[in-house]
Simulated scan of single mutants.
Amino acid sequence: MAALSGKLTKNLVRTLGPGRHGDGSGLYLVVDPSGARRWIVRVTVKGQRNREGKPLRTDFGLGGADVVTLNQARDRALEYRRLAKQGINPRYNGRQEIPCFEEIARQVHIERLPTWKNPKHGQQWINTLAEYVFPKIGRLPVSEIGQPEVLQVLLPVWTEKHETAKRLAQRIKAVLDVAKSKGFRDGENPVMTIRDARVLPQVKQRVQHHKAMHWKDVPAFYSELATKDAMAARALMFTCLTASRTSEVINATWAEFDFIEKHWIVPADRMKAEQEHRVPLTPEMLAIIEPLRMLRSQVVFEGQKRHRPMSNMAMLMLLRRMNIQGITVHGFRSTFRDWAAEQSDVSREVVEMCLAHRIGSEVELAYARSDLLNKRRGLMEDWSRYVTSSTETPSHAL
C-alpha cells in the first residue's frame, strides 16, 4: 500500500535543524545536535496499559534518515499504527530492517578513516573487531546486542589480553552509539552498563618499559654504529642524539629543518602530544644529516623507494644485525633521561621538554609560553658530545 502524505518533504528532511519535527500521524524526524537524523513513530497500543495504568504510548525507532527514506518511514509508521490499533505491540511484531553489528562497524570504519593520523590506525581498528567480535556477534542485529553479548566477547580476553580487551570495549561502544543515533537501537549502551556495574574482574596492569641501553655503554655502541654505511645507521645515530621517537625521525622532511637557526621543527600532526616540537640541532647532529642533502630526496632518511621513508622496523633490525639484543630504539629516550638525571644539573622540566613530554597541570600548561629552547640546546650539546666521545672519525655520507 502506498505511503501516506504528510507535512515533511525530502528537502526538509535534509535541511531541518536540531529538534523533533512532526510529519503527522505520530511520525517524527528527530535531528540531534550532532546533525544525525533518525525516524521515530509514536503509537498507543489498544487495550494495553503502562505501569501507571494509562494507555501504553511508546516511541519506536524506524531507522536513520540517511538509510530510510521519507516514504519508507511513512510506510513503516503506518504498519506500526495498524499493529497498535489491533492491540499488538509493534516492538515484538513490527517488520523493521535492522542491520547487523558488522554492517554498522564497517560503515563506522569508513566514515572515521579521515580522522585517524595514519591508515595503519584505521586498519588496526577494524582488524581487532574482525578478529574478536565479528565471529561471535557480528551477524546479530544491533538492536539485539546487550550485556550478555558484549560479555561473550570481552570475558575471554579481559585478563589475558587486557589492553586489547579495553580497545575492543571502546570500539563496540562506538559502533552501538552510532547504531542508536541512526535509530536502530534504544536504551543505554551495554558497554557502559557493564563498566559502571564493575561486572568484569579488576586487572592490575604492569607497566612495561621499553628496554634501554645503559648510558655508560652508549659511546662505545655509537662508535661502532658510526662505522656502518646503511641509511638505517644514519637514522639511528640521529635518533640517539635527538632522543626522538622512531616515527618522528623516519618521516622527517627537509622542509622541517632550519639550518640557519639550527633547529628541527617537528609539526604537531607527527607528534604524540599533537603539539609542534623544536629540536635544537647540535654540530654532531648536523654532521649526520647535512651530507644526506646531496641525495635530493623529499625525506631525510630515504628507504628503498625513492622519496619514501624507511620502514619503522629498519633501525630495530639494524640493532639485531649488530647483535644488540634486548634493546629497543625507543629505549634510547630512557637512556637519555637516565644520563641527564645522573650527569647534568638541569631541571626535570628541561629534560622532559627535550623528550616532548607534556608536564604540569592543564592550568600550568596554559601559562607555559616557552619551550626552553636555549636551555635544551645546552643539554643536547652536552649529550651529543658525550655520545660521540668514543667516535674517532666524524659521521660520513653514504
Rank of each mutant, 00 (worst) to 15 (best):
T282K: 08
T282W: 04
P283K: 09
P283S: 10
E284N: 12
L286M: 15
L286V: 07
L286R: 09
A287V: 02
A287L: 02
I289K: 07
E290M: 12
L292G: 02
R293I: 04
M294I: 08
M294E: 15
L295H: 00
L295M: 09
V299K: 00
V299I: 10
V300R: 02
V300I: 15
F301M: 00
F301S: 00
E302W: 02
E302G: 08
G303V: 06
R308E: 10
P309D: 00
N312K: 12
N312V: 03
M313P: 02
M313C: 01
M313A: 11
A314V: 04
M315K: 04
M315V: 05
L316T: 14
M317C: 09
L318T: 06
L318S: 08
L319P: 13
L319W: 03
R320N: 06
R321E: 14
R321A: 07
M322G: 08
M322V: 04
M322R: 04
I324M: 12
Q325K: 15
Q325H: 15
G326F: 02
I327V: 15
I327G: 12
V329Y: 05
H330T: 14
H330F: 10
F332A: 11
S334P: 09
T335V: 10
T335R: 07
F336S: 12
F336Q: 13
F336W: 08
F336E: 09
F336R: 13
R337P: 11
R337F: 09
R337N: 13
R337E: 13
W339H: 13
W339L: 12
A340F: 06
A341Q: 12
E342C: 05
E342I: 02
Q343N: 13
S344C: 06
D345M: 10
S347E: 11
S347M: 05
S347D: 13
E349A: 14
V350L: 10
V350I: 15
V350C: 05
V350Y: 01
V350F: 02
V351G: 06
V351A: 14
E352W: 05
E352I: 10
E352A: 11
L355H: 09
L355N: 08
L355C: 08
A356S: 14
H357D: 05
I359T: 14
I359N: 10
S361W: 01
E362K: 14
E362S: 12
E362Q: 11
V363H: 04
V363P: 00
E364S: 07
E364K: 01
E364T: 06
L365C: 00
A366I: 00
A366Y: 01
Y367G: 05
A368N: 13
A368S: 11
A368T: 12
A368F: 00
R369G: 02
R369L: 01
N374R: 05
K375V: 01
R377M: 06
R377H: 09
R377A: 13
L379S: 11
L379M: 15
L379H: 08
L379Y: 08
E381N: 15
E381W: 02
E381S: 15
E381G: 10
